[in-house]
Amino acid sequence: MKVSDYILIAAGVAGAAGAYLTYQNYSDFAGDPFGDEPKARYNDKTPLVPVFKAKEKRNETLTEALTEKQDDLATLNTEIASLNEEIEVLRTENSQLSKDKLDVDEDLKRYDRQIARNEAKLDEMNRYLQKFGDPEQIKAKVERLRDDLASTRASLAAAKDELASNIARNEQLQKSIGGHRETIEMAQTGRMRPSFRSTISEVYGRWGFVVIQGGVDQGVNANATLDVIRGGQRIGQVVVTTVEPSVSVCSLVEGSMVGGVQIMPGDQVKPAPKPADQEPSAGVTALLDA
């Protein structure tokens, strides 16, 4: 049924109830208009007060019934309005569903086209594979090639590591050779490392030689000239003549000693500088005066 049909039914019920109440009110106070007795005789035979109260009570009952029907009608109208709102919502949803259906149809068409393209590619790949034999054999061959490649890479990595190790060892050997070469050159030319420092442990002035701490193990070379230092000043020079593992024998350099000064145990020795770098003997006079 339509909404308008519900409204017409409710209006008919309300109209019928109103007509019925009008009829009852008239018959209570004017007599039965459809009866055989006129109004006066009807009123004479019927007590007015009890009849009035009974009719009044009946009127109240009917009024309550009418009110209830009106409430039902209002409730019905509210439900009708709610149904109308739901109908609008359903219409909106139906419109959206129709739109979604169109989108789904488009997606299905697009998927169908994609499936067709993929099937064409698959057929092309199958024809390509048929030219080269069984795919399983090709796969096995590829796996073997991958294994060979991995083995080759591992061998190459090991070779690189070995090469790096050899290069490092060669560099170390070159450094060692360079150090030995420098040591040999110093030994051949009677030079020593500038950082060498030692002390005189024994003095044999009568025979013109002294003994110093340090020998081959400390890098002392024969024919090396050493300055003798006391109080920070050079007082003479000695030349290494004999080198032992831990001590060396040195001869006094004639004419190098400062007049009046004699070498004593405890004096310091260090490599003499080159002639161009020879330190001046300034301060020796002050040492003699002391």
Results as ranks from 00 to 15, higher is better:
7 I>T: 10
8 L>H: 07
9 I>R: 13
11 A>D: 05
17 A>V: 06
18 G>C: 09
20 Y>C: 06
20 Y>S: 09
22 T>Y: 11
24 Q>K: 11
31 G>D: 07
33 P>D: 08
41 R>A: 13
42 Y>R: 07
42 Y>N: 12
43 N>F: 12
43 N>E: 15
44 D>Q: 13
45 K>S: 09
46 T>R: 14
50 P>A: 05
51 V>P: 02
52 F>W: 11
54 A>I: 04
56 E>S: 10
60 E>G: 04
61 T>N: 08
62 L>H: 07
63 T>H: 05
65 A>V: 05
67 T>Q: 09
68 E>R: 11
68 E>D: 07
70 Q>A: 11
72 D>W: 07
76 L>F: 06
76 L>R: 08
78 T>E: 12
78 T>G: 07
79 E>R: 06
79 E>D: 09
80 I>F: 10
83 L>K: 08
92 T>D: 11
92 T>A: 13
93 E>L: 00
94 N>P: 00
94 N>I: 02
98 S>C: 02
102 L>K: 11
104 V>F: 06
105 D>I: 08
107 D>T: 12
107 D>A: 11
112 D>A: 13
112 D>N: 13
114 Q>L: 03
118 N>M: 10
120 A>N: 12
122 L>H: 06
124 E>C: 03
125 M>E: 13
127 R>M: 08
127 R>P: 03
128 Y>K: 15
128 Y>H: 08
133 G>T: 04
135 P>A: 05
137 Q>S: 08
137 Q>R: 08
139 K>N: 11
141 K>E: 14
141 K>A: 13
142 V>I: 12
144 R>F: 06
146 R>T: 12
150 A>G: 00
153 R>Q: 15
154 A>T: 13
154 A>M: 04
154 A>C: 01
155 S>N: 14
157 A>R: 15
158 A>E: 15
159 A>D: 14
164 A>R: 14
169 R>I: 03
170 N>L: 15
172 Q>G: 10
174 Q>N: 10
177 I>Q: 07
180 H>A: 08
180 H>N: 09
184 I>H: 04
184 I>P: 01
185 E>R: 09
191 R>H: 11
192 M>L: 02
193 R>D: 13
195 S>D: 15
195 S>R: 12
195 S>L: 02
197 R>E: 01
198 S>I: 00
199 T>C: 02
199 T>F: 05
204 Y>S: 05
206 R>Q: 12
206 R>I: 06
206 R>V: 11
208 G>E: 06
210 V>F: 02
210 V>L: 01
211 V>Y: 04
214 G>W: 02
215 G>H: 06
216 V>P: 01
220 V>A: 03
220 V>M: 01
221 N>G: 03
227 D>V: 00
229 I>T: 01
232 G>C: 00
233 Q>M: 04
233 Q>E: 13
234 R>E: 15
235 I>D: 02
239 V>R: 14
242 T>D: 10
242 T>Q: 12
243 V>Q: 01
244 E>D: 10
252 L>Q: 07
253 V>C: 04
253 V>A: 04
254 E>R: 14
256 S>G: 02
257 M>T: 03
257 M>G: 08
258 V>Q: 07
258 V>A: 15
259 G>F: 02
262 Q>M: 11
264 M>D: 05
265 P>M: 03
266 G>Y: 00
272 A>T: 15
275 P>Q: 09
276 A>G: 02
277 D>F: 00
281 S>D: 09
282 A>Q: 13
288 L>V: 15
289 D>F: 09
